[in-house]
């Protein structure tokens, strides 16, 4: 069993050596029971998965939970992973599905909780300009964008995050969403329109 390697860490190959390998090679080794290879994959894509989950959930604890769960599921379903897709794409698809499940569960979350989650981001907005006024304006826009993004339906938010924040290719987005490239383009266009409609009133209102 592959998990035997988890407990006997002395038998693991060095992580540095494994990190030089390609994803396909690491996946194959992890599938054969080399848990160190899977750990390398984890360190390689942990931030990507977490960032995507964070954009989708808007909460750090939720994003962390989704990220961990995504790697657990990825490990469990490694034998089902087909090499035609990139590992990162496959992983993001798992994260996307988990976020969609979580969004469905959290539909009853009160508006107050959502507000708290959004307000919780305020302390993280670090100004990148010397001009304090410009920093304030930038923060305001960022907060408004977060609100607009959080208000979008999950299927719109999903493609906005993938395309405009994570800057994924349409082919990858199509694989993650399980649709054609043309379908992915159409979804991105619709999601941008929806986001534009939602952000406009937020930017016009200075309060």
């Amino acid at each position: 069993m592959a998990l035997d390697g988890v407990l006997n860490t002395s038998t693991w190959p060095s992580q540095k050596a494994a990190s030089d390998e390609s994803d396909e090679f690491l996946v194959r080794r992890a599938r054969d029971g080399d848990f160190a290879a899977f750990e390398t994959l984890y360190h390689r894509y942990q931030v990507l998965a977490y960032r995507f989950a964070y954009q989708m959930t808007g909460r750090r604890d939720d994003a962390e939970d989704v990220t961990q769960e995504a790697f657990v599921r990825a490990y469990q379903h490694l034998p089902k992973y087909r090499d035609e897709a990139k590992f990162s794409t496959w992983l993001l698809r798992i994260v996307s599905n988990l976020c969609a499940d979580r969004a469905r569960m959290n539909q009853r979350r009160t508006a107050l909780e959502q507000q708290e989650a959004t307000d919780g981001l305020d302390w993280m907005t670090i100004g990148s300009n010397e001009d304090p006024n410009e920093n304030l304006e930038q923060d305001r826009r960022k907060i408004a964008l977060r609100k607009a993004l959080a208000a979008l339906p999950p299927h719109h938010r999903n493609v906005i995050v993938l395309r405009d924040i994570e800057e994924k290719e349409y082919t990858d987005i199509a694989e993650i969403l399980g649709c054609s490239v043309g379908g992915a383009k159409l979804r991105v266009l619709r999601a941008r329109r929806a986001l534009k409609e939602r952000i406009a009133p937020l930017l016009e209102d200075p309060s």
Binding site: Y42, Y50, R51, Y54, Q55, R60, A63, L145, I160, I165
Partner: peptide
Amino acid sequence: DLQMLREVPEPQINFEGV
């Protein structure tokens, strides 16, 4: 502006949890 949203708080997770 959407590019600014790439900044996210640091995750407090490690591989031990996974």
